[in-house]
Each structure stands twice: as C-alpha cells, then as structure tokens.
Design a protein around this nucleic acid. Sequence first.
DNA 1: TCCGGCAAGATTTTCGAAATATTGGAAAAT
DNA 2: ATTTTCCAATATTTCGAAAATCTTGCCGGA
Lengths: 233, 233
Amino acid sequence: MAETASPEQARTLSAAVLRDLRDDIVNCRLRPGDKLRFSDLKARYGVGLSPLREALQHLAAEGLVDAQDQRGFTVAAMSVDDLQDLVRMRLEIESLTLTDALSCGDDAWESEVVRSAHHLRLTGPATEQAGPDAAAEWCRRHKNFHMTLLSGSSSPRLRNLCDALFDQSERYRLWLILHGTVARDVEGEHDTLMDAALARDTARATALLKQHIQQTADEVADLTATQAALAAA
Amino acid sequence: MAETASPEQARTLSAAVLRDLRDDIVNCRLRPGDKLRFSDLKARYGVGLSPLREALQHLAAEGLVDAQDQRGFTVAAMSVDDLQDLVRMRLEIESLTLTDALSCGDDAWESEVVRSAHHLRLTGPATEQAGPDAAAEWCRRHKNFHMTLLSGSSSPRLRNLCDALFDQSERYRLWLILHGTVARDVEGEHDTLMDAALARDTARATALLKQHIQQTADEVADLTATQAALAAA
DNA sequence: TCCGGCAAGATTTTCGAAATATTGGAAAAT
DNA sequence: ATTTTCCAATATTTCGAAAATCTTGCCGGA
C-alpha cells in the first residue's frame, strides 16, 4: 500500500513520506480524526521515525494534520464549519490569483492551460464506469487543470496557498462522491472557465470559478440536510 | 544566546526550538540566505538533530526557511520582489480578515483591542532612546495589537495566515530600522485604526490598514532607491 | 593553462535504542 | 459507590552513531 503517489521521485525518505502521507490523507485512506501512531506508520511506509516525524511536522504546518505536544499527531478533522471556512478562503484567494494569472499569463501559460484542459477531458466521461484507478487519475488531472490555470500568477505565495487549499478541499469532494452525489456538468464548467480565462475576461472567469467552488459547499450542505432528515425519520 | 523568546513554555524540545528558531529568523539574528548547518544549530540551541530537523521542516512549510533535499536548509532570502509579493498578499488578506473581525467581534474582542493598544502605547515614545530590549518589547506589543485586531475574525485559517505573513514582514521592518529610516507617526496610525475598528467603520478601517501596510513597502522602495543613487555616485 | 575525474573531508539523512511522558486499570481510601 | 493513587503498559520524544550524499581540492592529461 501507498507506493509512489506521484511520478516525481523524492531524493530523501522524508520527502517521499511527506508526499505519500499527504496523498493518503487527501484521499481519505487515512481518515479525518484518525490517530497517527508511529508503530502503524512505520509499518505502512517502511521507514524509521525521523522521516515520519519530519513529514508530520510539515503537514501540521500545512494544516492537514493536528499536532499535540507529547500526544502525537492526528489527521485533521472535517466538519461543516471547517468546509465553510475553507470555501470562504478559496473564493477570495483563488479569485485573486486567477485575476493575477489573467493579467500576467503569457503564451506558454495559455498553451499549458489548453493542454491540461484537454488532458482532463480525456478521462472525463469514464469517471463513473471505470475503477478507482481511473477516478484517481481524473483527480490528478483535475487538480492539474486548476493549478495550471492559476500558475500564470506572478505571486509564489498565492500559488502555494491555492495548492494547499485545493488539497484540503479534495477530502470534501471525495466525501460527496462516496455518498453518491451525482456530479453536475463539471466538464462544461471547466470548458467555459477556460474560455473566459483565455479571452482574459477577468470578471466572467472569476465569477465562474467562484460558482465552481461554491457548489461543492452547497452540495455538502444539501447532503448533510438530507442525512439529518433521514436520521429524524 | 537564544533563550526563551516568548513566555509560553513548550512541552517538547521540538516546539521550543521551533519557537526560538522562528524568533531568531524574524529578528534577523539568523540572516537571510544564511546556511543553517546542523553542527552550528546543535551548539546554538543545545539540542540533538531530531528536534532541529522537525523545527526546520515546520518553518520550511511556513516559508521562513528554504529546504533542499540532501543539501540542508537556509534562511529564506529577502528581496524587493519578495517584499512586493508579501505586501500584496497582506493588503488583500488582512483587509479581508479585518472586515470579518469587524462584523464578528464581540465585547470581549473590543476590550482586548483596547487593552493591546494601550499596552503598545506604553512603550511607544521610548523606542528610539531605550536599548534593544525595549525595541524587542515594542515589536512584541506591536504584533500583539495587530493580531488582536484581527483575532475577532471567525476564520481560523485567515487568522493563521495573517500571523505567518506578519512574521515574514517583520524582517523587512527591522531592515528599515537598522538602516536608520525614521518612523512616521506610527502611534497616530494605530490610534485612528483602532477608532475606526471600534466604530465598526469597515471601509475606513480597511483603508487605514492598507495604508499602514503599504507604507513599509514604500519606505523600502525609497531606501533602495537612495542606496542605488549613493552607489552610482 | 584548462578540464575532467577522483579521493578526502564535511554535511546531511536515517536508524535503533534510551529517556520521557501519557494512559488505563486495579487497589486503597473516602 | 466514588474518588484517588499508584503501577505497568503503551506511545512519544530525543540522542548518538552509522550510512548515504554532497562538496572541495588535488592530480594527471590534453
């Protein structure tokens, strides 16, 4: 379990474990709230304590794990409140970054956007039918498309922040998929978003992106409302 | 050197070293670009490798140190470009957070704001005359005032982010002080900012805060321009 | 003189064991 | 019955040595 999650090879065990741990948390193979015992992690990743502790400290700073002195580490919890906080930040930060990307992005950026959009389209329709491998591949391409779009920005801090916030959001999107919420017309949303971006239509692009982000929050709200209704009945 | 930097005591060596390292970097006792050799750090902080590496990984995720696989860690560099990126983010993020604080802050928050403002005023006029200890104390109270103002916000992520960005800015402010730039009427700026905040005048408060942040960037720009002129002559 | 390769030294990274702290439960006391 | 205390089991944290990797300076050859 948990072999190389992304093709880039790490030059240290610490970096490799960081990558694998983040991937396992983002994809809920390590579930929210789980206690991260070193004996378990050692066996799971086949490394010693030093690289594990370093990776966990890094993830603690990123917000994907909680650290408590002398009491170890746990996977960061998920909650409706947390999702609202997360979505609020993404709405503001990603709009800002996208605006910057539209004013800074050059020809190479445009081409990369087109490439990543096409790459994503190629796995699109098969999401439901194909196995978990195909779903994982779609997630990778989906993230790549969004990050490529934002990569035109000239601010390293904004780009990093968007990346971290996207990872945190992935757990909530996965939760929706696991509970059978049928995706809306995501394909179309990506296409129109890309069109607005390439046309440098800032107002339209940010509006579309905000809508795209907000809908995850709304769907989770619907789902929890439905579950509450079911529980009451 | 580098004993307890802040009163809160850490329950692990890792946390203590993280606190001290961050403090030493923010206050430029470890200078931008410096290589952080483990042999040096071991002697400086009197701890083994494990807590050091954990603290460095944490700071790498925060952005105060750069990590390169198999080639150790360095203090994050400073540059005019970096300052512009930093200021741009602070302008947006802190405005957002302050807006939220003004709409969420309760009585306890208001009282804390008044307390921290008064606490800051008490060290104000002595900044120039008194020694480095007094200057360090003013920095602590200054940060405490700004963070208290923003602490009314309901978003943990925004509050954390503001804290990290403030720390990163401190190095640039210190750089200005070291190069003898006389501070403008900072006292007055803090007072008017607090007044606007307590009056829940969002537009005025965010405008004042943005001005406050922007001026550091402008002063650095002036200073580098002056230095360039001197170098040319 | 300049360039590539190689060996010696320095530095980072990793592991296994020792030290320290927490937790759960049984026994004693209220 | 409830609370308190103690002890053993479990888990985390830290250190020091060993392994892996990088850097530096030297040497021989073009």
